[in-house]
Computed example of a mutant assay.
Amino acid sequence: MDMIICNAMPLYHEAPVSPILLKDNTEKVMEALLKEPAGIRYLIVPEGGWLWEKPEGLTIIETRHKSGFTYGNASALKKVTEGEKPIPLCSNEEFHSGECRVVTVEELINAGKKNVYVAGKVEKKGILDLDRKITPADILAAVGVQGIFKAMYFGHPMGVFINETMMDQPVELTTDYIEILNESDCMLDYLLKTADRYGKEACGRCVFGHEGVFQIRMLLTDMTLKKGKLSDLDLMLELCHEMKRQSLCEAGFSIANTVESALNCFKSEIEEHITKKSCKAGVCQKFLTFHILPDLCTGCTECLDVCEDDAILGKKKFIHVIDQNECSGCGNCIDACEENAIIKAGADKPKCPKKPLPCKSS
């Protein structure tokens, strides 16, 4: 073999698994790399991440970028060794490995566990040692989640959502990032944020990777703005199918997997944004409505005075009422109400009078 490349770059900046493992196992990594039967040996690290003497027979490359999905691609890493940007030429499966082998720090130190950063609504956030093959139920137990659970997202390069029906199905961990979601999270909102991240990671070299993510983001954004159509869901699935066939690297496959698994596990919740104009979690701002609670309203008119939309009906000592057709959702009324009588509501709306009525205390 002519060349070996050890990749110590994190895919996620908040999950610097490889740099941490390298720091904790520097001598072991150096020894393993120098034993490899290769004419040229490279170690790619984040800029400022190499603090030790450079050993003879090993080239250390410090990159300006701290993280990025493209660093998980073998052809992109080879470009880095040539002094170029990490732009993928093909997928890892298509990469010709006869003259070049790419390994991770975990592979070199023969780590029996998989180091993964766990985020979300959990007690034990941060990097954990997990079994490489593990069930979602065991992951929840490891992070201290009991009972309150809605979804789990396995980040790039897996790009997979699972729900509570899949708790005992083992998964093979190849990602450094897992996020736990609960009922306060909106799956459409989270899917859009995930697509936004993939959009920032796309290198722009292939149409189906770069433009595909753009189209997915556009369709998801329309859904969060009450402009979505049911046909958009089928359109996204068709787009994901083509992205998996024609994207140049794993980023295109991963976002396609992400969208497909989200629709497979949480289609009804996403559809409700389109058919019922409702966000159960109360996260999507366009689906929230403002209401004045009759039991708390004192008829002070403070909210009426600050409403620039003239959407609040009422007068002194009368329970005020918000005209939902006129309300723009600016939230000024909430800030003005000292009685905390004004709330935002998602799918569950409070019972309020349809017109102003005298306050009980008047």
Rank of each mutant, 00 (worst) to 15 (best):
K317V: 00
D323Y: 11
A142V: 12
N332Q: 15
R245Y: 07
I162N: 10
T289V: 01
D295W: 09
E107F: 04
E260N: 11
E172K: 09
D323Q: 12
L77G: 15
L77I: 04
S254F: 01
K113F: 12
G209M: 04
E183Y: 15
L237A: 11
N182Y: 14
D24V: 06
K28N: 07
N73H: 13
G144P: 02
S18W: 04
T59G: 02
G112Y: 08
V306N: 03
A195R: 02
V306M: 06
M167L: 15
P157F: 13
Y117W: 07
T70I: 01
M152G: 07
K54Q: 15
D295Q: 13
M218A: 10
G204V: 03
G120M: 08
V29Q: 12
L233M: 12
G49E: 13
K121D: 04
M30V: 03
K66S: 14
L21F: 03
C186A: 12
E260Y: 01
K125L: 15
I322N: 03
K113N: 12
I4T: 14
T194N: 04
V29D: 15
A347I: 07
I342D: 06
I322S: 05
P55Q: 02
G299A: 01
T194R: 03
E250I: 02
A251C: 09
G346D: 13
K280H: 11
I109R: 15
Y190A: 02
G331I: 09
C352R: 14
K193R: 12
T63E: 14
K229A: 03
V45E: 05
E271T: 09
E238T: 08
G252A: 08
W52G: 00
A119P: 10
G144S: 14
G159P: 00
E123C: 02
E250V: 13
C265S: 12
V143S: 06
G126D: 07
V306H: 06
L108R: 06
M167G: 08
C90F: 09
E179R: 13
L239P: 05
A74E: 14
N92L: 06
I180Q: 08
